[in-house]
Design a binder for these strands. Structure first.
Length: 557
RNA sequence: AGUCCCGUGGUGUAGCGGUUAUCAUGCUUGCCUUUGGAGCAAGCGACAGCGGUUCAAAUCCGCUCGGGACUACCA
């Protein structure tokens, strides 16, 4: 640990606990997802808070499925969550754990509590229980069954477990205080009857523990020291503590921090699911989705996601982290790692009149200026090439210093090129340029040292590969889609968030790439090979564009 | 309305009684450049308000204002 670094409030608590020897110097955290959906950026944050802290202090980290509600949970989600946690880089070693493995122990603890007169079987149905609970302003009323004898409670609870009663007919409840100002303390249910097959424990149980009862026990059983969770559990902490205290068992400390929101996206599992089921996106792994699998498909790296979670920080204040920060982290990481190639998204044909027909000139190109070990490759240059349509302007505006009639630019790693003629179609669109090249400038250096203002990318017209490119933009048009009271978040879906470009031209080096590989198209952005690609048809996803000060200058006007 | 939590540049974040109020992102400008990328340099921009304690308050106390969480047999 670097003591000179600023410490968030959780690390400060842990520092103090270490100093006082509260947990014998141990640090043990956990990530407790319910297997009822896919992990997303918010989950990544929770993982990096928990795993990051354990790792930093030389402690342990558990992946624990909080699988106490068989109605909502599926094997599919268990598998995807394990995959995503591993991909993110959180190492739970051999501790892939399931709450459902503790059901017997929890049951035994419940019997302890009944024997202590602190829990009772209640016959109220859901509707009546709600009625009896009162609300924020009015105190609740005691259940008619609150004073049942310990013997009767023990008997009833055992029969609940044996399956003698139908779903919803009885619950086991903690006996606390129906007038408590904290609603969570108004005799909260601990068990409900649910005759359902569980994805991990099968049909072994027909009573299932409820979160508040289960979670502290799980933490206690695993020897967790610091149970880090989000703010909405703050009001549950008194109950977390109450159960552990009444049982008089090992007592971890729950600490809450603010969940992370990110601008222009949403982080709710429920609504993410709605986007998928209503086909507003193309599945959970749509590259626009903030899901882990979506970001993976988009080409975001686990290192970038981790860095983002760290830069976002930890505090208790409600927050919306700028999406731009995520993009900055992705660019930072990819800049160091991604090989460069040239790709033309919107091709404009150029014929170089003074370059021999049929000749293929193989030119050296550096793979990654940021990484000398990445080596170099050869790029074929021919008489006919493509450049980016946006790199030519018939009537160049001020500060545009790329190609224009009579103007010279550098073709990256190739030759200095001058535009001589423009060919237009009947509609007046520029369809082709006739240019010439300074044959003494091979490699891109001016023989007389003359300055050339711009360097543009290009691709051979005959020796390039045709690809499809998918462009993604922010999923929503507003920073906080959930924040508009009178509007449904779906109204803000960005109609331009997904575009497909066909007929893009990329240099031949990309044919060796595999699914998921990322490259930088020079001057354009980072692109990764989509799993939809086949041998004859490479499809690229744009992960993120390069910073483009020209584009910003234009937008500012 | 009740309980709990939280207010530092546009967005996040540090600060723990004395600082030119940190860092990142963002934006602006300059340098450099065979990516208008990267890098480098400079700049812009904040302590919610009001009282109090103190020689000294972003830091401690009180009030006001503002924001968030919570009324599932979900987690």
């Amino acid at each position: 640990m670097d003591e000179s670094q600023s410490r968030d409030f959780i690390r400060q608590v842990i520092d103090e606990d270490l100093k006082t020897g509260k947990y014998d110097g141990r640090v043990h955290t956990r990530f407790p997802p319910e297997p009822n959906g896919y992990l997303h950026l918010g989950s990544a944050k929770a993982i990096w808070v928990n795993y990051g802290i354990a790792d930093e202090y030389g402690g342990k980290f558990n992946l624990r499925f909080d699988d106490t509600n068989p109605i909502a949970e599926e094997k599919e989600f268990i598998d995807s969550i394990v995959e995503d946690v591993k991909w993110l880089g959180a190492d739970f070693e051999d501790r892939l754990l399931f709450s459902s493995d503790y059901f017997q122990q929890m049951y035994d603890y419940a019997i302890d509590l009944i024997k202590k007169g602190k829990a009772y079987v209640c016959d109220l149905n859901a509707e009546d229980m709600k009625e009896y609970r009162g609300d924020y302003n009015t105190p609740g009323k005691n259940s008619p069954n609150r004073e049942r004898s310990v013997e009767e409670n023990l008997d009833l609870f055992e029969r609940m477990k044996k399956g003698e009663f139908p779903d919803g007919s009885k619950t086991l409840r903690a006996k606390i205080d129906m007038t408590h100002p904290n609603m969570n303390m108004r005799d909260p249910p601990m068990y409900r009857i649910l005759h359902a097959t569980h994805p991990h424990s099968g049909d072994e149980w027909c009573i299932y523990p409820i979160y508040d009862w289960a979670h502290g026990l799980e933490d206690s059983i695993e020897g967790i020291t610091h149970s880090l969770c989000s703010i909405e559990f703050e009001n549950h902490r008194p109950l977390y503590d109450w159960f552990l205290d009444e049982l008089d068992i090992y007592h971890p400390q729950q600490i809450e921090f603010a969940r992370m929101n990110v601008s222009y996206t949403i982080m709710s599992k429920r609504f993410l699911k709605e986007l998928v089921t209503k086909e507003l996106v193309n599945g959970w792994d749509d590259p626009r989705m903030p899901t882990i699998c979506g970001m993976r498909r988009r080409g975001y790296t686990p290192e970038a996601v981790k860095e983002f979670c760290y830069r976002a920080g930890i505090a208790k204040k409600a927050n919306i982290i700028a999406f731009e920060l995520l993009e900055a982290c992705v660019r930072d990481d990819l800049n160091k790692k991604a090989s460069r190639v040239m790709g033309v998204l919107d091709p404009l044909k150029i014929v170089i009149d003074n370059f021999p027909e049929g000749e293929i000139d193989m030119l050296d190109a550096i793979n990654n200026p940021e990484d000398p070990d990445a080596g170099s490759r050869q790029v074929p240059f021919t008489r006919e090439i493509f450049i980016e349509r946006a790199d030519f302007m018939e009537e160049p505006v001020k500060k545009f210093f790329r190609l224009a009639p009579g103007r010279e630019v550098r073709l990256r790693y190739a030759y200095l090129l001058t535009c001589n003629d423009i060919i237009k179609n009947d509609a007046g669109d520029v369809v082709e340029l006739h240019c010439s090249v300074d044959l003494d400038s091979r490699g891109g250096n001016a023989p007389d040292g003359r300055k050339v203002k711009a360097t543009i990318h290009w691709v051979s017209a005959t020796e390039s590969i045709d690809t499809e490119i998918r462009l993604y933009d922010r999923l929503f048009t507003v920073e906080n889609p959930m924040g508009e009271k009178d509007h449904d978040y779906k109204e803000f879906i960005n109609p331009d968030s997904f575009k497909t470009l066909a007929g893009c031209k990329v240099e031949p080096a990309v044919k060796d790439l595999e699914h998921g590989d990322t490259v930088q198209f020079e001057r354009t952005g980072y692109f990764c090979v989509d799993p939809d690609s086949t041998d004859g048809n490479i499809i690229f996803n744009r992960t993120v564009g390069l910073r483009d000060s020209w584009a910003r200058m234009q937008k500012g006007k």
